[in-house]
Design a protein around this nucleic acid. Sequence first.
DNA 1: TTCCAGGTGGACA
DNA 2: TGTCCACATGGA
Length: 273
Amino acid sequence: MIIKSENFNLKQIADSGQCFRMLEIDKDTYSLVAFDRYIELKQIDDETIELSCDEDEYKEIWHNYFDMDYDYSHIYKRLISGDDEFLRDAASFGKGIRILQQDPFEILISFIISQNKNIPAIMSSIEAISRMFGEEKASGSRTYYTFPSPKALSMVSLEELREAKLGYRDKYVQNAARLVASGELDLNLLKKSDPRVAFKELNNLLGVGPKVANCISLFGLHHLEMVPVDVWIKRSIEEVYDNKFDWDEYEGYAGIVQQYMFYYMRFGYNKED
DNA sequence: TTCCAGGTGGACA
DNA sequence: TGTCCACATGGA
């Protein structure tokens, strides 16, 4: 089926570092595994996306996954007409970025794995744990592996996790999976709770510092005001703003602003092409 | 080969 | 409370 939106670009979303299972399989065409489903998406033009699912599945899963009820054009227009030149450029460059509503458990584990790894290495570890501990499924002739459930992952040994190249993060992943599987950590509750409370609880987990807790809050709990500060954001605030940047100016959607900055800093700013 | 990666825990001052 | 460093491993 076809959907239309001015602010929806598959490449920008796939490269924005929030989602590790969206792969370019052909020109302008991506595969994606999420919520135990497999889908293929094609960017037809700037505002048209073709999805390989029917309307029922779209309504059930993907409409919400791609956060279609949030008005990104409103944020985009505000930045593009603002007086901050860097943010004007960043928003223009990443016009099609959206904050996906991904599975909180998958995001929790994915961003615990992400620390001190580059994005390709994160993707390969996540693919490995899905192959090893997820469920094998088929979509047409294509085989794919769902992200492991909390229960499945909670029963895995540290040795098995090491085989997925998690390195020293093995115990962090095992600990988090066990807490979710036992019900001690309730991510769905955190999604509904105050963002500061959720952040604190995540930050208390072993292997989860402020950066990862913010990523889980923004990408897993859809707390759009939370701002992960990584090397790229640090770099932009140092180089562009002389270490003076006030996130409070973007109250309620600072996380989206952060995402424009991240994407622009990585792929647009100071680049020849 | 060397350096770096969407960082964090633990030791120490 | 702030700074320093080890940590596993792959990708460039």
